[in-house]
Simulated assay, not measured.
Amino acid sequence: MSLEAFHDSEALTLGVELELQLVNTHDYDLAPYAEDMLRLMKKTPLPGSVVPEMTSGMIEVSTDICRSSSEVLSQLTPIRDALVRSADKLNIAVLGGGTHPFQQWHERRIYDKPRFHELSQLYGYLSKQFTIFGQHVHVGCPDADAALLMLHRLSRYIPHFIALSASSPYVQAHDTQFDSARLNSVFAFPLSGRAPCVLTWAEFEQYFDKMTGTGVVKSMKDFYWDIRPKPGFGTVEIRVFDTPLTIERAAALAGYVQSLAAWFLAEQPFTPQEDDYLVYTYNRFQACRFGLEGEYVDPVSGEHLPLREHILRTMDRIAPFGEAHGATSALQLLRAETLDGQNDARWLRELMGREQLLAEVTRRAALRFRG
């Protein structure tokens, strides 16, 4: 199978996908209500789409094409409200967060869809362990070569995306000591990690042909990379975000991505190279483990500095581009919480410290999602 052509896309447009948790309102464990939610959600005209995910206690929503983070929020708001109304009818709740704090993976049911059953046969128990919840952000690129440059430039900022969105400190009722434990489940898949450092679409097509020639992959869907090109949409797709606890933070993260991408397109600030990836895995681990308190190693200078400082420096650099694209309020929200060392993982831990009951933490997270 050959790689599909890279479709035309308006540069710097945005699309956001959110994987969300469905929980009962008895003990706040995951509940297998995806099919019922899909049936109810069909009754309300909404932007984007609502689709099932790997297991039946999950659902994924997405926006249409947006041109600003405020438009992302304006689309997510009615989607969120419809989700809440539908959940109320079923006596369940919807929430964000990268992992459910205490669900047991072996109790999950694979959603009845051919691709999910195929993945379950291939990956075994990893399929049920993939009951994790992420935000994906698509950013439009003017052409295929620009998309690859965008992908590799964005890769330097993967630790930013992880630390700012981290919301998965708890797994199976244990504090993992990670801010984003969700990504440990993603890394277990054989085609996860980083894309190959090729900078032209012709080279990428050659790589894709080699991979399909091995029989290991059939389409771009088979790559679980942190960032991957999405030729059918004319975008690159960032996949490392945990699902935030609020749609406001989800929209702000999209604004951050758009502001970075606008800087890249306007100034071409650096040429990606293979050596950018010398410290990639280390930086990614630091962000997953310690969140905003992690360490960042500059891949060019070798400078070590606090990740929070690197994020704040970057926010200063891209502020004019954020302003030009209506993302100033998004950047201000993220900047204020970065200065305070606050992300969703910290909010969850602080709440657990007070309540000492993960079911109550989950209930409160569901209330927070309602707005």
Rank of each mutant, 00 (worst) to 15 (best):
M315K: 01
F133K: 00
G96V: 08
M211T: 11
K221I: 00
T314A: 09
Y282S: 05
R108T: 14
A195R: 05
V240K: 03
A11S: 12
P196S: 02
D344N: 10
Y224P: 00
S70M: 10
A252L: 08
V240M: 04
Y282N: 01
L305G: 05
R349N: 01
G371A: 04
E60A: 10
V297M: 07
R249E: 14
L83C: 12
F223V: 05
A327M: 01
T235L: 04
Y256I: 08
F241E: 12
Q268F: 01
Q75N: 03
S259N: 10
V257F: 09
P78V: 08
Q129I: 01
I162P: 01
E203A: 07
P47F: 04
A345F: 01
I59K: 07
T200N: 11
R228E: 03
A252H: 13
T99K: 09
L73Q: 04
L149K: 12
Y207E: 11
M58S: 02
E71G: 12
R109E: 09
A287E: 07
L126N: 08
S70N: 12
V139W: 01
L119G: 08
P47K: 05
S9C: 15
E203L: 03
P114N: 13
F133P: 01
L358A: 03
V139Q: 06
A5E: 09
D179L: 06
G134A: 15
S56E: 03
A31K: 05
Y28P: 00
L331H: 10
F290A: 09
G371Q: 11
S74R: 14
S9E: 07
V139N: 04
L95H: 07
A251R: 03
G326M: 03
F116H: 13
D88A: 05
T328I: 02
D179A: 08
L191G: 03
A365R: 00
P101E: 02
S68I: 06
K128Q: 04
F223Y: 08
R313A: 15
V51C: 02
V361N: 02
N283H: 11
I59F: 11
V217L: 01
S301I: 04
I227F: 02
D222T: 10
D222S: 13
V361P: 01
L348M: 15
F204S: 02
L119H: 10
V240Q: 05
R67K: 14
M211P: 00
L83T: 10
A173T: 13
E118H: 14
P269A: 09
S70T: 12
R85E: 14
